[in-house]
């Protein structure tokens, strides 16, 4: 298609501006994380004058990053696994079986997705406290409460995306499996799940990223010992004297899982999530 010179110049200028605005904060974070303390305690320079990897070593003891990272990894991984498993079964039922209450379930999932966290989080806190008092199920201050909450936050999107994916799959393989005597659950696990792997990877990354960066629930459901990295870094940020180079190093380290995950599912995301594979 013909592209005029005017359009090409407009594109060049506009994309350069947007790219600079996008990249500048990334550059500030990454470049500050390799500067000595003196360099982040003075006027800002875009080009670092001294480069050192020391902040990446010191940040573990200064901020206590290790503890936070372990907590976040445990919570986010468990929530991701649970969310993917639960949503695979639910999405398969919704996309393949016609049962009474299917529409109602779909509506429930949709409204749970629209329902913001702030409407449930105070009553939820009271529910968890009551579960603890009545039945001794400790959900406040433990990993369990966070895992259960994040699981339900990502579940609606996972079910939604997977239902779309499953509905778009060709059925002849499933028919063949059924003909060979494989039951419904066997068909799901041995035929459908392997074909839908890219979609599963995508919803897994989504669930993980959601649990990894959630702040509101984590700020009330965690104690000193179970703080996730989001709340941990926030509490360090509000400390009286912040060692910025080490905090930036901690930011880089705690971004790696989410960024790597998103880059790995880039192709799937580019196709708009629910496209058939």
């Amino acid at each position: 298609m013909h592209e005029g010179a005017g359009f090409r110049w407009f594109r060049r200028v506009a994309l350069t501006v947007i790219a600079l605005l996008t990249a500048a904060p990334l550059w500030v974070i990454v470049s500050s994380s390799v500067r000595p303390l003196a360099d982040v305690r003075g006027p800002f320079h875009w080009i670092p004058r001294n480069v050192t990897l020391q902040p990446y070593l010191d940040t573990w003891s200064t901020i206590g990053l290790g503890r936070y990272l372990v907590n976040s990894v445990i919570v986010a991984s468990a929530a991701t696994v649970a969310s993917v498993v639960v949503s695979v079964f639910a999405a398969y039922a919704v996309s393949r079986i016609d049962f009474v209450g299917r529409r109602a379930f779909g509506l429930l999932v949709l409204s749970a997705q629209v329902l913001p966290a702030m409407f449930v989080f105070l009553p939820l806190f009271i529910v968890y406290a009551s579960l603890d008092r009545w039945w001794g199920v400790g959900l406040i201050g433990s990993y369990g409460g966070l895992i259960l909450t994040y699981l339900t936050f990502s579940l609606p999107v996972c079910i939604w995306v997977l239902t779309g994916t499953f509905s778009g799959l060709r059925r002849d393989l499933e028919d063949a499996a059924a003909m060979d005597g494989l039951g419904r659950v066997g068909t799901l696990l041995r035929v459908v799940v392997p074909i839908a792997r890219p979609a599963l990877a995508a919803v897994a990354v989504f669930s993980f990223a959601l649990a990894w960066s959630e702040v509101m629930i984590a700020s009330v459901l965690t104690t000193q010992d179970t703080r996730t990295v989001a709340v941990g870094l926030q509490s360090y940020l509000s400390a009286p004297s912040v060692l910025w180079n080490q905090l930036m190093a901690a930011c880089v380290i705690s971004s790696i899982p989410a960024v790597a995950g998103f880059l790995s599912i880039r192709r799937f995301v580019m196709r708009g999530w629910s496209q058939p594979l």
């Binding site: 996008t22 904060p25 990334l26 990223a209 870094l233 926030q234 905090l247 930011c251 971004s255 960024v259």
Partner: peptide, 15 residues
């Protein structure tokens, strides 16, 4: 252009 969306919100805020 994908990276800012992939960066966790708390990292963006701190940066």
């Amino acid at each position: 252009f994908l990276v800012p969306f992939a960066v966790p919100g708390f990292v963006a805020a701190i940066g």
